[in-house]
Amino acid sequence: MTAKAHRNEPTTILHTPGQLLANIPGILGFYPSESIVFACMFNEGEETTLTLGPVMRLDIGDIRLLPDVAKAMDSFKPTLIFAFIISKALPPHVLDDTLDQLYESAERGTINITGCWYTKEIISSEPYMLCFGPEPEALEADDHGISEWEYGRISPITSAVATKRMLQEGQLPELSRFEAYALFEQKNPHLSAARLKKMKKEAYELAETIEHKINADDSGQHFLTSLDVFTHALEFVKANYFDASSGAENFDELLKETDILHTAATYMSKSFLRDAILHLCVDFPRESALLLRATACTFNGELRSNALSLYALSVIAMGLAMKAAPALEVSIQTTPRHNLSNLLREGLFNGQSTKLIDACLRGNQQLRDYHVPASVTEVNDESKPQS
């Protein structure tokens, strides 16, 4: 039995549980510990080939939530589900009890667990072992035989396709779930509360002025100027806060740049301006992600949620959807009814990252078409240098 991992990239064949385990940090964006991880698998017409779909994680102490997890996974209608218990803190009797509950849930049909494996932690070469299922005759039909499905060692993490994708963008899985969320819980240490309050007020007032000018301008020039301002901000970030040789980000220095943060705050103060520059987050995803994270770590309230939602869209555009999930959760904690964050989270949960970007860009294009006459757009297109 083999599994194919689809992430809008060339197909990768995962032959063993050890290879699947190696991909989990890259899929989640962090190294899960004291967790139960469920991987949904889908049949694509080939009897021995399955496609890896959504991956879900549950705190090992929250086994009581198993029916809710089962309900969520059932909505995907997976062919089968693999479960992985990751723990080095559970006493043996508690681990046995957890296994019993998973097995009973599988037997009752509450959750279609075909196989369950245990490992202490997800690191390269860490041993894993099969706890229950699949049947030996099913494993013997696989090219790798029963041995690597019953027990084995986790494949190199850095060679896993999910990790490679992160490495290509200068990223690594966070060491824990806590650290994945902590990326967005930092506070800007360079600005006092009084200064932040003043900046936020000024940004909102400027945003109102920009929106008013755009709505009163039939020529579309104010709208285009507003796009140019944010584009220049992203170009400034690219030129000054990315290392030219390594591409490494300089996030801490960006937190000191009050002028650029004020510009970003202006565009995140109103949903109208946020939606107007949405396409730039797809066109310049790395620069947008860095600037918007700095903005989210500087300001609070709906402004922060707007920045986090567009940060999420930026990293999705980079192929790093695993980085989007914590940002969207933090955004919704900040502003529970934040529409864009809730919509993005729902789409991400359903594995629709490509469709998410397409839908957001369609809405953005409609907004631009409404405010900029076609004749102006055509003139601008003709003035651009031809590649």
Rank of each mutant, 00 (worst) to 15 (best):
Q19S: 06
I24N: 06
F30V: 00
F30K: 03
F42V: 04
E44F: 00
E47A: 08
T48V: 08
I60V: 13
G61T: 15
P67L: 07
V69K: 05
K71W: 02
F76L: 15
I86L: 15
Q101W: 09
Y103C: 07
I111Q: 12
N112Y: 10
W117N: 01
P127D: 02
M129I: 10
F132D: 05
G133D: 06
A138W: 07
L139P: 01
A141E: 11
D142N: 14
D143F: 06
E148H: 14
T158F: 10
R165A: 14
P173Q: 01
S176Q: 15
A182Q: 14
K187F: 04
P189V: 06
R195W: 00
K201Y: 04
E202F: 09
E205R: 05
I210A: 04
H212P: 00
N215I: 11
D217G: 10
T225D: 13
V229G: 02
V229P: 02
T231H: 15
A233W: 09
L234E: 06
F242S: 09
A248G: 01
N250S: 11
K270N: 10
L280V: 02
F284I: 02
A289C: 09
R293D: 06
A296S: 10
G301Y: 10
L303P: 10
N306G: 00
N306H: 03
L310W: 12
Y311Q: 05
G319M: 03
I332Y: 04
Q333H: 11
N342D: 07
L344H: 08
N350I: 08
Q352H: 08
K355M: 12
K355I: 09
L361R: 09
L367T: 07
H371S: 11
A374E: 09
S375G: 09
E378W: 06
E378R: 04
N380T: 09
S387H: 14
